[in-house]
Amino acid sequence: MTAKDSNCGDLYTLTAMNVESRLFIGHHEGGRSIDDAIELFMDVDEKREKNSQIPVFTSDNWDAFKDGLVYVYGKLKTPPYKGTGRRPDPVIVPSDDLKYAQVCKKRRNGKIVEVVQRVVFGDPDEVLEILCGDSDGKINTSYVERLNLTIRNSLARFIRRTMNESKDPVMHSRALDFIQAWYNFVKPHRSLRVEENDGRRKWRQRTPAMAEGLTDHIWSLEEMFTFRVPVQ
Results as ranks from 00 to 15, higher is better:
E129F: 01
L149C: 08
D96N: 11
K77G: 11
P79C: 06
R160P: 14
A156F: 01
V72L: 06
G110S: 06
T141K: 10
Y73M: 12
K77C: 14
R87W: 15
K82S: 01
E165N: 15
L147Y: 10
L149T: 06
K167A: 08
M171W: 05
P124A: 08
L69G: 04
S154W: 12
S135N: 02
E114I: 01
M171P: 03
I92P: 04
G83D: 07
V113E: 03
R107N: 12
E126V: 01
V70R: 04
R108Y: 07
I139R: 00
M171K: 09
Y100I: 01
Y71L: 11
Q117E: 15
Q102H: 13
G74I: 03
Y81T: 08
N148G: 06
D168V: 04
F158W: 15
N109T: 08
L147F: 13
V120G: 06
L76N: 02
R108L: 06
D89P: 14
G137N: 09
I112W: 02
T78Q: 14
N109E: 12
V70P: 05
E114M: 04
N109L: 09
M163P: 11
K111A: 15
V91R: 10
R87H: 11
E126N: 02
I151Y: 02
T150Y: 05
S154C: 10
R160E: 15
N140S: 05
G133L: 01
V144K: 03
V119Q: 02
S135Q: 00
G122R: 09
V144C: 01
I159F: 11
F121T: 02
M163R: 10
K138G: 09
R87F: 11
V170F: 10
V127Q: 02
C104N: 12
D96S: 13
R107T: 14
F121R: 04
K75Y: 04
L98C: 06
I112Q: 02
K99W: 10
R87L: 09
D134A: 03
I112H: 02
S135W: 00
I130F: 11
V113P: 02
L147M: 12
G110V: 06
K167Y: 09
M171G: 07
D89Y: 13
K111H: 15
V91M: 04
T141Y: 08
N153A: 11
I159N: 10
V113W: 01
R146Y: 01
R118M: 12
M163S: 11
D136T: 00
R152H: 07
R108E: 09
G133Y: 00
K82R: 03
Y143K: 05
K77E: 12
R157G: 09
Y71T: 15
G83S: 08
D168C: 05
K99V: 05
N140Y: 06
M163A: 12
R161T: 14
T78E: 14
D97F: 11
Y100N: 00
Y81K: 11
D96L: 13
L98F: 09
T150R: 07
G122C: 03
D168N: 11
Y100A: 03
G122P: 08
F158R: 10
V115K: 02
F121A: 04
